[in-house]
C-alpha cells in the first residue's frame, strides 16, 4: 500500500500552505494525499423544531457545496500537478475527526495549517492545529 498523507483542508490560506508542504513531501516520497474537510458539528447542540425538520435538507446542501466549491477543484488541481489525491468530507469535531480518519486510513502523516489566531481566541476556543498535535495518532506536521 502506498504511503498516504492526510491534509486538513477548509479553504483557508493556512490550509493552502499545508497543502503546498504536503505536495512537496508527497512528490519526494511518492505518497498519495487524502484531503479531509470537516464541517464543524456537535450532536449536542440545540436546534429549534424548524431546524430539526430542515436538517437533512441543509446537510445535503452543505455537503454538496463543500464538494463543488472546495474539494473538487482542489483534487483536480492536485492531479494536474501529478499528485494522486482523494478527498473525504465529514461532520464532527474537527481535530478528533481528522485523527480518527488518520487511524482508520493508516495514514503516515497529517499536515495541518496553523491559522495564527490571537492569543485570546486560542485561549478560549483552542485551535485545530494545537489539539491535533495533542491527539494525532501519527506524526503531525503543523505548517505556519
Amino acid at each position: 500500500m502506498a504511503t498516504k498523507y492526510i491534509v486538513a483542508c477548509d479553504g483557508s490560506s493556512a490550509s493552502g500552505r499545508a497543502i503546498k508542504v504536503a505536495v512537496e513531501q508527497a512528490k519526494l516520497n511518492g505518497a498519495s494525499l487524502l484531503l479531509v474537510h470537516v464541517l464543524e458539528w456537535s450532536p449536542y447542540s440545540f436546534l429549534t423544531p424548524e431546524e430539526l425538520e430542515e436538517r437533512h435538507k441543509r446537510r445535503n446542501e452543505e455537503l454538496k457545496r463543500a464538494q463543488l466549491a472546495l474539494v473538487d477543484p482542489l483534487v483536480e488541481s492536485l492531479s494536474s500537478e501529478g499528485v494522486e489525491s482523494s478527498a473525504i468530507i465529514r461532520y464532527g469535531h474537527v481535530s478528533e475527526t481528522i485523527a480518527d480518519i488518520a487511524e482508520k486510513e493508516g495514514a503516515a502523516q497529517i499536515f495541518v495549517g496553523r491559522t495564527g489566531q490571537s492569543t485570546l481566541t486560542k485561549l478560549i476556543f483552542g485551535s485545530v492545529a494545537a489539539s491535533l498535535a495533542q491527539i494525532a495518532p501519527v506524526p503531525c506536521t503543523i505548517v505556519p
Binding site: 464541517l39 458539528w41 450532536p43 449536542y44 436546534l47 436538517r55 446537510r59 455537503l63 461532520y91
Partner: peptide, 18 residues
Amino acid sequence: YSDPNDAGEVSHFQALAT
C-alpha cells in the same frame, strides 16, 4: 448507537432537547 457517517443529521440528543 449512532453511525459516525450519519454525523450532521439530527441526533437523538437534539431531538430530545428540542
